[in-house]
Design a protein around this nucleic acid. Structure first.
Length: 415
RNA sequence: GCGACUAUGGUAUAAAGGUUAUUACUCCGGUUUGUGGUACCGGCAAUUCGGGUUCAAUUCCCGGUAGUCGCCCCA
């Protein structure tokens, strides 16, 4: 018989208990901070009609970088590659009854069909937080402050990451002044987006806009002192968000951004990459035929976040959800152990009963290996005495306690 | 889609064109019939797949596959 491979599908991960623990830790921390800013959780299906992405996303992304297939009814279905179109669809569908401003967050898994590499897999989870209905700079300040708090909530300091801000309206003003016509603006934006990676940027710019390129370059050089960005910078500073830099190379790939854009980078040398990004997209909901709703949001991926936290040694040690392992010593004691376990569970103690009947030492080793904090043996002695010897495995402390006081005893330890 | 590098037990590794492929961890059993990670003994378990060169390939060559990293792209 042919053996099945134990490998997971390319580019996706198996979450063993320790992986799940870290994932839950990240999700729970992010959720807590979002809710502290008044954001409500929402969710949606992984499946979306493919046309949702055809309208707003480039052809390459839909055709080559999504999982798209036909269902049995011949409909084109896509595994969501991002959450923004979904949340825009949901808000547009009920915008009259939702009540603005609206603050929503979610931690969906998304799929992209592309080559895996560091920080990038085919399935990832990403926090999406969006604020709908506030057009002004107040929302820009809030969303960046939220992003900042999300990262410091893990124990990171401002030296560990840096927030790069920019504003697309700055470029619109510059294009007006330099006399760049609407048709070439998109290609100039695309050049600006790749500027840091290009070694012939000025030549490419010249071939795109002609003799206007000198004027354009000098205007771009002074873009960092724009009042829009200076004001935002100052307001963030007042809120204690001081690791912000104006960076006019931050463009972000999508056409739909209409104002402030930002990206957060890990400052360490080993992991010098983007961990979150977002910006203002005021026109997106118009696609659904509803009145324009000013919106600002950002996303933060679990893969890059975990790389960041690993790099800065900010991930916690694994803790088992099980509080105590009952080590059954012989088959005659199993039913007694079951009764004790039921009694403890009714008092909110998580109990695993070890029915292996191995030597006590082996059973205790197993409890330690599984990071279970307490153990107790169940055998003839316990059946006769009505007491348990509860052992705290981290310290080796043992205490003999009556069976109905075991739960209270466990509570005397800080877990 | 393009490129570079890598591929040895479950994990991590060593070595070599030629008898039984190293070591550690894990796992199973024992020294030890009711309490710990140490110690000692024993056991299970591997050269990614296909082709080529060669008397002989796991080792050299080519290809496939997979992984890692980078490019492209980035929601």
């Amino acid at each position: 018989m042919k053996k099945l491979s134990t490998d997971s599908y390319r580019g996706v991960r198996d979450f063993y208990p320790k992986d799940t623990y870290l994932h839950d830790y990240m999700v729970n921390t992010l959720s807590r901070v979002c809710e502290s800013f008044g954001y409500e959780p929402y969710s949606a299906s992984l499946l979306e009609p493919a046309e949702l992405y055809r309208t707003k996303t480039s052809d390459e992304i839909v055709n080559e970088q999504t999982y798209t297939f036909k269902d049995r009814g011949g409909r084109d279905v896509t595994l969501r590659p991002e959450m923004t179109p979904t949340v825009a669809r949901m808000v547009a569908a009920k915008y009259r009854e939702l009540g603005f401003p609206l603050r929503w967050y979610s931690m969906p898994n998304c799929f992209r069909y592309e080559r895996a590499q560091r920080g990038r897999l085919r399935e990832f989870w990403q926090l999406n937080a969006d604020l709908f209905g506030i057009a002004g700079a107040d929302a820009d300040v809030e969303i960046i402050t939220l992003a900042h708090h999300l990262i410091t909530a893990f124990g990171a300091t401002e030296a560990d990451f840096q927030i790069h801000i920019n504003d697309r309206r700055v470029f619109e003003h510059i294009f007006d002044e330099a006399g760049i016509d609407a048709g070439t603006r998109k290609s100039v934006m695309s050049l600006l987006d790749r500027r840091a990676k290009m070694d012939n940027f000025e030549d490419a710019l010249r071939s795109s806009v002609g003799e206007k390129s000198e004027h354009l370059l000098s205007l771009l050089a002074s873009a960092a002192s724009n009042p829009l960005l200076e004001s935002l910078h100052a307001r963030l500073k007042n809120l204690g968000v001081t690791n912000v830099v104006v960076d006019t190379s931050i463009i972000r790939g999508f056409d739909y951004y209409t104002g402030m854009v930002f990206e957060i980078f890990d400052t360490s040398d080993e992991n010098n990459r983007s961990i979150a990004g977002g910006g203002r997209y005021d026109a997106l909901l118009e696609l659904f035929g509803v009145t324009p709703i000013p919106t600002i949001g950002f996303a933060l991926g679990d893969v890059t976040l975990q790389d960041f936290l690993t790099t800065h040694e900010l991930l916690p040690e694994y803790v088992s959800p099980t509080d105590i392992m009952l080590c059954v010593l012989d088959e005659q004691s199993a039913s007694i152990a079951d009764t004790i376990a039921q009694n403890l569970r009714s008092q909110d103690i998580n109990v695993a009963v070890n029915y292996s009947y191995k030597k006590v030492g082996d059973q205790i080793k197993l409890a330690i290996k599984k990071h279970i904090p307490f153990s107790a043996c169940i055998g003839q002695q316990e059946a006769e005495s009505g007491t348990l010897v509860v052992k705290h495995l981290a310290t080796g402390e043992e205490k003999t306690v009556p069976m109905d006081e075991v739960a209270d005893h466990l509570c005397t330890y800080e877990v």
